[in-house]
């Protein structure tokens, strides 16, 4: 297996992976979306709300705010253990982080409360972005609430998913038969390509090598070519994996965590097979 890093920023990771079966890559991708735990607000207790917004509306907005979760993964109990505690109203410290929000409207104009105004009981778990507006308050309006965050998984609610994008795509193989292609006389494929991949070089049709991965295999160029000179295909067992984080976890951590979870799942499966006597 060969892996190249195409792009790496704090929120995005793009990998070119060779010699990996598609179903393995897809399993990892799906685990990243649905199984990697992150922190998010799950229960909100309102002690005062005289704003024009419903409690539910504010609670929903709070739930969607991404919280930093890298250290929380080791510190707090897993979602399966904490889920029932919240239903019974037990906000224990090994499961929940408390975040307080308080604010009052002023006479001078509208007051906006931001995610940065949330006061967390654990400095390792706080909003990733400080400028997300939560509520607007006019004069004589007041809000006081306690929000409780816990670990959860994307399969329970999308707010716990650490990724906004986790996708893989094929690597395109664009084949131009030069003996048929009319080059400068035609140019139909150049005009029609939505990703702007073709160009003319010395009167001949050429492919922009730095843009080849942008190709979405839409095959409009194939159809547009009056001489059938273009053939689009894809490489076997080569893929581009894109991960875009919501900020809760760094993309590298998401990938490693996903692989760990997938491994555990397979181990569990093997164990069950042994227990049932299917394998020895």
């Amino acid at each position: 297996m060969e892996i190249n890093v195409l792009e790496k920023t704090p929120l995005k990771l793009r990998l070119y992976i060779k010699d990996i079966p598609l179903h393995v890559l897809n399993s990892i991708r799906r685990v990243m979306i649905a199984e990697v735990p992150t922190m998010a607000i799950d229960s909100v207790v309102f002690t005062m709300n005289s704003s024009v917004f419903y409690d539910e509306y504010i609670a929903h907005r709070l739930g969607l705010v991404p919280l930093t979760s890298e250290k929380a993964l080791e510190k707090y109990k897993l979602p399966e253990e904490c889920r029932e505690a919240a239903d019974r109203g037990l906000f224990t410290e090994d499961c929940f982080v408390k975040l307080d929000l308080e604010g009052k409207g002023s006479e001078e104009g509208l007051v906006t409360l931001y995610s940065g105004d949330l006061k967390s009981s654990d400095p390792d778990v706080r909003p990733v972005y400080d400028k997300i507006p939560i509520v607007l308050l006019a004069n004589n309006q007041e809000i006081r609430l306690e929000a409780y965050a816990r670990l959860g998984r994307g399969k329970e609610h999308a707010k716990w998913s650490p990724v906004s994008v986790a996708a893989h795509k094929y690597v395109p193989l664009i084949h131009v038969r030069e003996e048929i292609c009319k080059g400068e006389e035609c140019k139909k494929c150049i005009e029609v390509c939505p990703k702007d991949i073709f160009e003319l070089k010395n009167g001949k049709l050429a492919i922009k090598q730095d843009k080849i991965l942008d190709c979405s295999l839409c095959r409009i160029c194939e159809e547009a070519c009056p001489y059938n000179a273009i053939k689009i295909n894809w490489k076997e067992n080569e893929y581009v994996l894109t991960i875009e984080s919501t900020g809760a976890l760094p993309p590298k951590k998401i990938l490693l965590e996903a692989i760990k979870i997938l491994e555990n799942k397979i181990d569990d499966f093997m164990e069950s097979l042994k227990k049932e006597g299917v394998v020895k």
Partner: peptide, 11 residues
Amino acid sequence: RCFTCGAPIGH
């Protein structure tokens, strides 16, 4: 967040 992809945009 974005309705479709879930990327945070409010900030």
